[in-house]
């Protein structure tokens, strides 16, 4: 077994330690690969052809990709200033705010969808947003982005905060003495040094958003050619007995996710590969 780090001469205890660590990696990776391979062997060729030629499924794929990308961008737009604030500023109740930021991570996704539906249909503010402002989310593609944002933005915010925590404040202080304003030191020093952590948060957010299912069924439903995304298509196909097609779509989802995550890791550099 080849180790990543330069190590000194290793004794048998060190080798056992490395082997034990690698054992867990192997078990996990083999298990995941087995699941995918099982799907590949089980999937019907006709079903694959159906999936690749269906315009509704192409639409669902496109919806999944663009909504998860838009969600990730919006999440990062919030994550960077929020992560920086939570990392650098102390204010009354900051511990509570920190906990609230993590709350959507532990929310069952279904609950998030239900809560959003209740908010937009039962509260004055929700109805005002939909009826008077004209921002309609229920049963609309915009609702997909909202559901994805609510359930996945916390990952981006948490990652950004951790990344900013890891940037030594002395760098920012030195930047201040060299002529930067606080924003200048943030832009020129803190942000570039936290970049990898922020991108990692983006990957987590995108991954969660891309595969989201539960809250979408509640808030936006799954209307063919309108609000259907890959995850809801899988559910619809299997609920009408098209298990082969459902499985073929699942494989499509897995491959698209694998390609996207691998590309971002390669672009993001070696630090991301550690995450």
């Amino acid at each position: 077994m080849k180790t990543v780090l330069d190590t000194p001469v290793r004794g048998w205890r060190d080798r056992i330690f490395s082997a034990a660590a690698f054992f867990f990696v192997s078990v996990f990776v083999i298990f995941v690969l087995m699941l995918i391979i099982t799907d590949i062997f089980y999937v019907d060729k006709k079903a694959v052809a159906t999936v690749l030629t269906s315009k509704f499924i192409r639409h669902a794929l496109w919806m999944s990709v663009w909504t998860s990308c838009v969600t990730t961008l919006i999440a990062l737009l919030f994550a960077v200033p929020m992560g920086y604030s939570l990392s650098r500023f102390r204010f009354p109740g900051h511990i509570l705010v920190d906990a609230i930021v993590d709350l959507p991570i532990v929310f069952p996704p279904l609950v998030a969808g239900l809560t959003l539906l209740v908010f937009f249909s039962q509260t004055g503010l929700g109805r005002w947003i939909q009826d008077d402002l004209g921002l309609v989310f229920v049963f609309q593609p915009k609702g997909i982005v909202l559901c994805q944002f609510v359930t996945s933005a916390s990952f981006a915010i948490r990652s950004a905060k951790t990344a900013f925590d890891d940037v030594d404040r002395r760098y920012e202080n030195v930047a201040l003495t060299l002529g930067c304003t606080q924003f200048g030191s943030f832009r020129r020093v803190c942000l570039p040094l936290a970049k990898n952590g922020i991108i990692a948060g983006g990957i987590l957010t995108w991954s969660r958003a891309f595969g989201l299912f539960g809250p979408l069924m509640i808030l936006v439903g799954s209307f063919r050619g309108r609000t259907e995304v890959l995850s809801t298509t899988i559910y619809l196909e299997q609920s009408i007995g098209n298990l082969e097609v459902a499985l073929a779509i699942a494989l499509l989802l897995i491959f698209v996710a694998l390609i996207a995550v691998t590309c971002i890791r390669l672009v993001g550099g070696s630090t991301l590969a550690k995450l």
């Binding site: 002395r170 202080n173 201040l176 040094l193």
Partner: peptide, 17 residues
């Protein structure tokens, strides 16, 4: 503000970016 004091500060472990 620090940037307007005309002071050059070299911290202990240099803090090079």
């Amino acid at each position: 503000e620090p940037r307007a004091r005309g002071i050059g500060y070299v911290p202990q472990d240099y803090a090079l970016f």
